[in-house]
């Protein structure tokens, strides 16, 4: 039986989980499991956002600063006496404004995403610094802190429910809507897609808007969990999210990528981070392991492709 890329990754995630359960003390404890569930959503949402952008063949280097700016938006509302809902709405609006700006320059002017988001990354960071003067904003209402710290039905962390919800929404949007289909088609061949009557610029604009929406949700969870926001909110997730998307099978040149693959990759990262921690490894070694896995997986892809090709050629020669 031939397994899809994603199922293999799922098995790897399972294997990692089992291995760590065996060797890392306390990995299976309910405390540890819930703490992983609290940590995973914020990163998972950013990774999904990055994946959607990468499927178009682009990249969004500004995504974590969009999240941070969105978090600042929420924090400003909360600390100025507004309620939770207006704060969330402002957070989302801040993010959408950033996404629209990225989307405009990329889709209407046509500048390559890596350049645009390199610039807007610095720009958004600057805006946050200008607003916060480099300080952190903290002290939010108890209600707000429930988003990132509370439980759904007293059992499952609320944030993981939100994450699962958005993962499902993303999967449906990508695989079942005409927008999602156009995203894949655009990522494979933008000219042929344009020549098929697809409004490429609109598709692309929606991609950057949707990515920023996911960043906003992640920001809400993060600010709620940490009860504060600073300019570097989630900034460590930037390159990790690219790594997760690529490890999850997303083609860095566009055209392919699945939600479930990215989710598995995010889980693998989470297990490793947590497991190494329990095993007493220095936290910085987690990065080393993640980097090594990323390169190893792609190198293995390369060699297995090569092996397959060689086998095919041999077969063809034999037949001839």
């Amino acid at each position: 039986m031939k397994l899809s890329k994603e199922s293999i990754l799922g098995l790897i995630a399972l294997g990692t989980f089992l291995l760590l359960a065996l060797i890392a003390p306390g990995f299976l404890s309910s405390n540890n499991i819930t703490s992983m569930m609290f940590q995973l959503p914020e990163f998972g949402l950013i990774a999904l956002a990055m994946m959607v952008v990468i499927v178009t063949g682009g990249i969004d280097l500004s995504i974590t600063y969009i999240a941070a700016l969105s978090g600042v938006g929420a924090a400003l509302m909360l600390t100025n006496g507004y309620g939770m809902l207006p704060a969330i709405i402002v957070a989302i609006l801040f993010a959408l404004a950033c996404g629209a700006f990225n989307g405009f320059v990329i889709s209407k002017i046509g500048v390559s995403p890596i350049l645009v988001t390199l610039g807007t990354m610095v720009l958004f960071e600057g805006i946050i610094l200008a607003i916060t003067k480099g300080n952190s904003i903290s002290g939010f209402s108890d209600g707000y802190s429930l988003i990132g710290n509370g439980y759904y039905l007293g059992l499952v962390p609320l944030s993981i429910v939100i994450f699962v919800l958005f993962a499902i929404i993303t999967a449906i949007l990508l695989s079942k809507t005409s927008w999602g289909r156009s995203v894949y088609m655009y990522g494979s061949n933008e000219t042929a897609t344009l020549f098929s009557g697809v409004k490429n610029s609109r598709v692309l604009m929606k991609v950057y808007l949707y990515a920023s929406l996911l960043a906003a949700i992640s920001a809400i969870i993060m600010t709620s969990r940490y009860n504060s926001v600073k300019v570097d909110l989630g900034s460590s997730y930037l390159l990790q999210s690219v790594a997760a998307a690529v490890l999850g099978g997303t083609n860095i040149h566009g055209g392919y990528g699945k939600v479930i693959g990215t989710v598995y990759a995010v889980m693998i990262f989470q297990f490793i981070r947590n497991g190494l921690n329990l095993l007493g490894f220095h936290s910085s070694l987690v990065d080393v392991v993640i980097g090594a896995i990323l390169i190893l997986v792609l190198a293995m892809n390369f060699f297995s492709d090569k092996f397959k090709k060689a086998a095919e050629t041999r077969k063809a020669e034999k037949a001839a």
Partner: peptide, 14 residues
């Protein structure tokens, strides 16, 4: 054509 994509996806694209 979007070569990497299936016949189905190509035909329904417009």
């Amino acid at each position: 054509l979007v070569l990497e994509q299936s016949i189905i996806n190509n035909i329904s694209l417009p």
